[in-house]
Amino acid sequence: MLILVLNAGSSSLKYQLIDVETAEVKANGLCERIGIDGVMKHEIAENRKLTIDHPMPTHKEAIEFMLNILTQNDTKVIENIDEISAIGHRVVHGGEYFKESTIIDKNVIQKIERLIPLAPLHNPAHLLGIKICQELMPEKPNVAVFDTAFHQTMPEENYLYAVPHEDYTEHKLRKYGFHGTSHYYVSNEAIKMLQKEQSKVIVCHLGNGSSICAVKDGKSIDTTMGLTPLEGLMMGTRSGDIDAGVIPYLLEKKDMDANQIIDYLNKKSGILGVSGISSDLREVIKAAKDGDQRANICIEMMCNRIRKYICSYAGVLGGVDAICFTAGIGENADIIREKVCSGLEFIGVEIDKNKNKIREKTNREINKTDSKTKIFVIPTNEEFVIAQDTYKLVKA
């Protein structure tokens, strides 16, 4: 069964065509600069990589072009779109409506629309992708897979904010958490590696957007992102945790309005803001090696905050069996893994520096043999989770 997985952004469209039964990725790609000039980066299963300039004034043209690439001429991987069984859509915010993935109907669309105030940059784009697929492929079932769903198992004491309770009951002001498909996939892989169903796992999803999740017996019990993806760790351009008093201070000192403050904290802070170099950690690490002091401070700040949350979640879990690193930084930046683990020996963390430097695109253990706590590097696969959930729902 072939599942088309879509992740529609405001000016981008990521896609994968996956054979769920064999786990083979037939093709994948990214349409960028939709509404500007349009560029597609497309990769076929045989590792044929293409970059194609093509006008994409709207998401509809981007999806139409993607379907043409999959079915026509030299880039063809299927004869026609009839071979696609269903479409799985990543949806960032499911609020309290959705505790699991669901087949999309009018009622589901209405609920995703109601959640737009909680994810104004993401949910409208996802809805656009859903509606276009329904128009272009009306016979195909569409499934929504929510970033927030995995975290719906958090207990009340972990998801509530210390604000008047009516703001939760009336306005749904609470922690929701994100990166749920990644945390679900990685924690399940860790459980397999531990061979231990009753387990205490901490997953560090570290990329341009970063979050940590405490997973007990396969269920999320706490996570760093909150009402929005701004809370928690220091990220590429996001500040992460910050004193709420900073906001009125900036309003006064820099004469900003609310929208400018949100832009400042979401797009101008984090690694970019502290380093003054880039939001790309690779460039900051290079600058640090060349002696740049701000770059060094930026790396130390980032690792310190990750370490503090690991210690916090070890307390929440009552111990830890494994710490997992995943996503772009977590999978590839050995210096970050080493710095994060340094000083955690008191909770049984003993990293093997030689194993840590090995680069492989497979699940691997990087702790010393006698380390009480396991340290895993597990490449995430959010698209496969979306494809699996879509397959299960459509088959059922």
Rank of each mutant, 00 (worst) to 15 (best):
A27D: 06
Y176N: 01
S10Y: 04
M137V: 09
S279R: 15
A288E: 03
Q388M: 11
A149G: 03
C133Y: 02
R33V: 04
T75C: 12
I78C: 06
I358D: 10
T237C: 07
F178W: 03
I116D: 05
L128G: 03
D321R: 05
V215N: 00
A396N: 15
P141E: 08
G232I: 05
A149N: 02
G330A: 08
V143M: 03
M235G: 01
G348C: 09
K216R: 15
Y391I: 02
N142W: 09
G207Q: 07
N363I: 12
I78Q: 04
I132F: 02
P248M: 12
L265K: 01
T390R: 06
G276H: 12
K372A: 14
N123C: 10
Y391C: 05
V246S: 12
E365C: 13
P117W: 08
D280V: 08
A258Y: 13
P124K: 05
E350D: 14
L393W: 07
Q134T: 04
L230E: 06
E170T: 13
M1G: 11
G38M: 08
S182E: 03
E139D: 15
Y309W: 13
P141K: 15
A327T: 00
K111M: 13
M234W: 06
K308F: 10
A62R: 03
V320R: 02
S85E: 13
I132T: 01
L118C: 09
L173I: 15
N304Q: 14
I36H: 10
S199V: 06
A295S: 05
A244Q: 11
S278A: 10
L127C: 05
K140A: 11
E197A: 12
L13N: 05
K196E: 04
M66R: 08
I104L: 01
R114Y: 10
M56H: 06
L230P: 01
L118I: 02
I351K: 06
Y176A: 06
G35P: 00
I261L: 14
D352V: 11
I299S: 06
K339F: 08
R294F: 10
H42P: 07
A327P: 01
R294C: 10
P164H: 12
R114D: 13
D334V: 11
G236N: 02
I18N: 00
I116E: 02
V377P: 02
D53M: 14
H89M: 04
T51S: 15
I351S: 07
K368M: 14
L194E: 01
V77L: 09
L50P: 04
R364T: 03
H179Y: 07
I375D: 00
L6F: 08
F325W: 02
K76H: 05
L67Y: 06
T22Y: 07
K196P: 10
M235W: 04
E139T: 14
K361C: 12
R359Q: 14
F150A: 03
V25S: 07
H54L: 14
Y391N: 05
E113L: 09
